[in-house]
């Protein structure tokens, strides 16, 4: 019962196929890129034809979009949202701010490299990426899921101490609940 192409079992293949075609995105806009999301989801670019739709709460969501710069205060909330999401979960990072800090690289209150704080599956570069680029990013994520390589949640759990250490460097007064996920 082996699928030759990527050595998944049939059950695993079906699961990944359905995950790929049903991505609920967490509607949480962190930076200026949040303005591209309505355009992506509505009539003009219509992401719903790819099975992408908004989810209202982190419990129901699969994809967390980090749309632009992250202030240190926002990072705290993003970590809370991320930890409340259920496995398997995916993170898409938007724009240059999440890659190297972008135009806020020397700011005292925005983080520079998102990957040091939560694991990232797909980066979409641009400042800001247009909806076409966003959809291309989603398709890249879909390919990754179909190949069974999107293991965001496991990566986070396995390297939790490293991520926590990095998070504590920014969030000095850690008053956050621990989520059992």
């Amino acid at each position: 019962m082996e699928n030759k192409r990527n050595s998944q079992t049939i059950a695993e293949y079906i699961k990944n196929w359905s995950r790929k075609h049903s991505l609920f995105i967490m509607a949480y806009g962190t930076g200026c890129g949040a303005i591209e999301i309505p355009a992506t989801l509505t009539s003009r670019y219509d992401a719903e034809r790819l099975g992408i739709r908004g989810a209202a709460t982190p419990r129901q969501a699969d994809v967390l979009l980090i749309t632009g710069y992250l202030a240190t205060k926002t990072l705290k909330r993003v970590i809370r949202v991320y930890e409340q999401m259920q496995d398997p979960k995916y993170v898409i990072a938007f724009g240059s701010c999440t890659i190297n800090g972008g135009m806020y690289y020397d700011s005292y209150n925005t983080i520079n490299v998102l990957e040091k704080y939560i694991p990232v599956d797909v980066y979409i570069n641009g400042c800001m990426p247009r909806p076409e680029a966003v959809i291309a990013g989603f398709q890249q994520l879909q390919d990754k899921i179909a190949r069974g390589e999107a293991d965001n949640g496991t990566r986070y759990k396995e390297n939790l101490e490293w991520y926590r250490a990095n998070q504590h460097r920014v969030i000095k007064n850690w008053r956050m609940p621990d989520y059992n996920w």
């Binding site: 705290k76 190297n100 800090g101 690289y105 520079n112 490299v113 040091k116 920014v170």
Partner: peptide, 27 residues
């Protein structure tokens, strides 16, 4: 600001790039 323990950040002798390099990870 949340949990700020440095010099007030808008003072001109606060070196924001040094702080950013120290606190965040430069790519």
């Amino acid at each position: 600001l949340e949990d700020w323990d440095e010099m007030p950040p808008m003072r001109r002798d606060f070196k924001t790039d040094v702080y950013a390099e120290k606190t965040f990870f430069a790519q």
